[in-house]
Structure formats: C-alpha cells, structure tokens
Design a protein around this nucleic acid. Structure first.
Lengths: 145, 145
DNA sequence: GTAATAAAAGACTCTTTTATCTTAAATTAA
DNA sequence: TTAATTTAAGATAAAAGAGTCTTTTATTAC
C-alpha cells in the first residue's frame, strides 16, 4: 500500500467534509464514520491530526463536528497526504536504501524519481473542491463498500 | 513504503546472486547477509520463498547456498517483486477502496492507473543481468549502508 | 561412517499499525 | 443549571510486519 490506511481514511473523510461543506454547519464525525464505513474512534484520531495540521477545524458538543479550515479550492489531496503520512512516500528509495539520491543512486533511482514525481503530481493536481465536483458529476464513490 | 521490506531485501539479494553468478558455485546466504547487512534468518526466509517460486535454486550442506534458477537475462525485477509481494501493488486502489476499477472508479483512479503502470514498467524493464551490469559499470550500490 | 557445514522449518519476540474502549472536557438546549 | 450530545484524550487490544533463535535435515569432506 502506497498510503497508510489512516491516510486513505483521511483523504476520504476530507472529501466527505468538502462535499457537505455547502451546509455551513459542522459535519458530525459519527455520521461520517457511518457513511464511509470507517471505525468511529479511529477516524476521530485521524481527524484530530488534520485539525492539528490546520486542514480542518473542530467543534465540541451538540451540533459539533468538523469543517474545512480553509476553502476547498485551496486544499489539495497532497495537503492531506502530507499531514498524515508525511513526505516519506515522496522521498524514500524504492529499494529502501538509506541516503539513496542523485549522488548515491540505487539501480532504480532515475526511473523511480519520475514515478514518484508523477505520484506527487497526481495528488497536487486535485483540490478537494475539484475532486468533490468530480464525485458529484461523474457519480464516483467514496465509501469503503 | 511501496514494497515491503522483505521484498526490497529480496530484490537486493537477487541482484547480489546475479552479480556472483559468474562463479558457478553456490552463493552463501551467510556471506550475502553479511555483505548486504540484512538479518541472516530473515534473509533465509525470503530466499526460501524465491526458491519456492522458481527464481532461485538452493543447496544444503557445505558449499551450499543459492543460485539463480534461470539465466539472469530472463529474470526481471518484476519477477522478484511478484514472487514476494504479489500483484497487489499493481492492482490495488490508491485510496484503498475495494473493487475500485474502470467500472467503479475512485476519484483518483484514472491517473493512478498510469502511475501504477509506469511503476510496473520500471520493474519490467530491468532484468537481473542488465541491472547487474549497470551496478558494475556505474558503480551503483546494493548494500544497506 | 563421523563430524562439520549450511539451508529448511518452525517457534518465538519485538515493533508498528490498526482498531476499540473508557473517561474527560466542552458545548448546546431546555 | 442540568442533561444530553459530541469531540478530545488516553489506555488497551488485536493484527501485521520485521526480526531472532532453536532444532531439524541434507550434504560434503575427511
């Protein structure tokens, strides 16, 4: 798996929040975990991280939940991925050799760099807003089932 | 990490065996684990799998060890990756959605398919023989340190 | 045939990731 | 101000991945 489970859950949740963000009210984590079929407590932890990283904002108590901290057009999927899994996917050697790089490359380094960049580009190219629109227009799916 | 640790160790070990395969004698697993700085017993398990998958052949007893089961020109790095990690890297959804595919795509599916194919191409393009040559000619490195 | 060598096999441990459960703190509405 | 709701936080558990250790089996060389 390229991304950790926590990270894929974080992306799905962010897109879910973006989709709901027309209604200015907070999005319930319980509802979200039900709809996306993700363990409530696990999802809560992931959302806490996204909140700490400034991607979401949260609110306790009745009518509480989470909301995008910034406009959906200004948040890319890369932002979410970096907030949860960090940069390692985009910096690590595909063969796990420490310190692999242009100066001290592994046998696959040059080709791997292009694949890695394309992967990063894929996450950068899509904002939550645009992806949310795609989901609506093309009927794409978010849920785990 | 795109590949499991066991898988990256398997690739490094296969390249090591390919490099030694001029000397027709078996390559000692102990020597290999020393040179590559990989835990001996862990490496042994990985090589057992490669042997079971028909990529290596092994021999017990004094002067024993492992050898490529086929010519190094006929084994690609993809063969090794598939033997250890299987096809999941090349089939799984980047967002972890079960059953994601052309008929029922996730929001990233189309772009992800191209990245995934390029990754597979990277592993397919290189045989153990060619990679071994690259290592020798360009002074690339194999060891974990 | 005996002793030494080296891989095979399996049990076991440690770490990280994923997931659950419980309690605390904050907020709302009555 | 009290009760209900909902996130925060932390402890615990389960599963998977990584790594170690011990015993067995096969082979070689003497």
């Amino acid at each position: 798996m390229v991304l950790s489970k926590a990270c894929t859950y974080g992306v799905l949740a962010s897109l879910y929040v973006a989709k709901q963000s027309e209604n200015k009210s907070y999005v319930s984590i319980r509802d979200m975990s039900d709809e996306l079929n993700i363990s409530f407590h696990f999802l809560t932890k992931i959302l806490q991280k996204l909140t700490a990283e400034g991607i979401l904002q949260s609110h306790k108590g009745p009518k509480g939940g989470v909301l995008l901290a910034r406009p959906a057009q200004s948040i890319t999927i890369l932002d979410v991925v970096l907030a949860i899994d960090g940069e390692k996917v985009f910096t690590e050697c595909v063969l796990g050799l420490p310190g692999c790089g242009a100066q001290r490359p592994c046998p696959l380094h040059n080709h791997w760099v292009t694949v890695r960049e394309d992967l990063k580009e894929m996450f950068t190219a899509k904002t939550l807003a645009a992806t949310s629109d795609d989901i609506r227009e093309l009927g794409l799916r978010l849920s785990l089932d």
